[in-house]
Every structure is written in structure tokens, then in C-alpha cells.
Amino acid sequence: MSAPTTIFRRPEALRDAFTHYCPGCTHGIIHRLVAETLDELGLRERTIGIAPVGCSVLCYNYFNCDMQEAAHGRAPALATGVKRVLPDRIVFTYQGDGDLASIGTAEIIHAANRGEKFTTIFVNNAIYGMTGGQMAPTTMPNQVTTTCPRGRDVNTAGWPIPVADVLAQLRTPAYIERVAVHTPRYTVQAKRAIRQAFQYQAENRCYSFVEVLSTCPTNWGKTPNESVQWLEDVMVPYFKLGLKKSPDRPPVE
């Protein structure tokens, strides 16, 4: 009998660390997809990641590359600062929905509009996780949170912001795609998109942005299985998956 062959292992771009994420949360999967990408493209040693404020504030404990930690919402500003002084490095921001779509709206729109050559991984789980389940800009209509205990009222709180679709309206060339990771099939597609995003950056082509629909069983008050179902039934029909914008396809006049 021959020696066993390793067919699955921790990417080098992930540290050997215990996770602090809740059971059923998909942050871990998304971390892994980013790390695999850095390994596969050989980028880890020249990458600087920017951590947000939110559940993934501690993502520097997992990513095995240089990291900075930003103030709430300002990750795109830090990334701009890094990329402008070190244009040959790979820079990415990893941000949640409160961070990116609420307090950091100006930063993300303007970084995208300037065409900053970095990559954003936007984790949209429709709620504030770290502070314990408050309404996010991406919270679904009628979804109950601690700050909309009767459900999100779209008449006073507005509709969930479809960030990928909003950014895709900008004229500046970019790569923008929305994906999900709650089934293996979606996860494979998500990996392809994340890899494409970093590939564009490595080629110095454009700003790249991948919105990843994610679960939050703890704050949604659901089991992991129920969460996957809710994401499929409620979020996916509203936040349409797919490619929103590509530098290879010029905008239609």
C-alpha cells in the first residue's frame, strides 16, 4: 500500500488558528476562498489585507499575510493609501455590510470610482453581527432585528441597498460580481469570481469587487440549515447573483 496522499490542506495564506466565528457562519468559507486564491496566484508574500470593523475585525488572526486594521468603514481609504505608495503590491479589503454599505458608503463609492487597483471582498449577511444583530443597510424587508423589532419597514428604513448593482452603475471600468457560498455549487462559482478579482488586480487592470451573500445564524435566530434555506429563499431573489460589470465588456452607450 502506498503512502497516503494529501488531497486537502490548509492554504499557506491561512494561519493555523481556532476560529471565533459562530457555527454556521460562512465567513470561514470566504476566508478560505481568498486564501486559496492568494496561494494559487502566488500573491501571499506581496499582499496587504485591510480588516474592517465588524465580525471580521479579527481576520488578521487568520490571513497569513501583512494586514492593517481600519476604522469603521474606512478600509477603502487605507487600501487607497497603501496601493498608491506601493503600486506593485496586492491590496484587498475585507468588509461587512455595516462597514461598507453604511458608515463607509462614501469611501467604497469613491475608491471604486477612482478605479483604485485593489480588491474588495464584501460580505453581505443582512445584519450587524458583532454588535449583536442590528438592522443593516442590507437587512431584508420585514426582517426582524434588535433595532427593527417589528421588521424592517421599507417606508421609513428604505429598501436593502444592492451594493454590487449600485457600484456597477459607475462609468469607471471595474470587475463587479455578486456570489454566494451557502451550497457547494455556489461556492465553486464564488471561488472563480474571487480568483478573477485578484487576477484583474495582479494585471493592474481595474478595481475589483466581489459581494458574497453570507449567513448569520446567531443573529438571524435560525439554525445553520434554516439559515442556508432563508438565504436561498429570501436573499438570493432580491440580491441577484452574477456578473455585474467587467473590464472586458465596455459599458453600453
Binding site: 474606512r74 481609504a77 493609501g81 505608495v85 503590491r89 469613491h110
Partner: peptide, 15 residues
Amino acid sequence: LAASQMIFGAAAAGA
């Protein structure tokens, strides 16, 4: 807000 946080990023990158 953004200008001063760009300072953070660039300073942390050694500039």
C-alpha cells in the same frame, strides 16, 4: 475622513 485614513494606510505601508 477619507484623506486622513489614506494617511493611515500609507504610513502603515512605510511612506
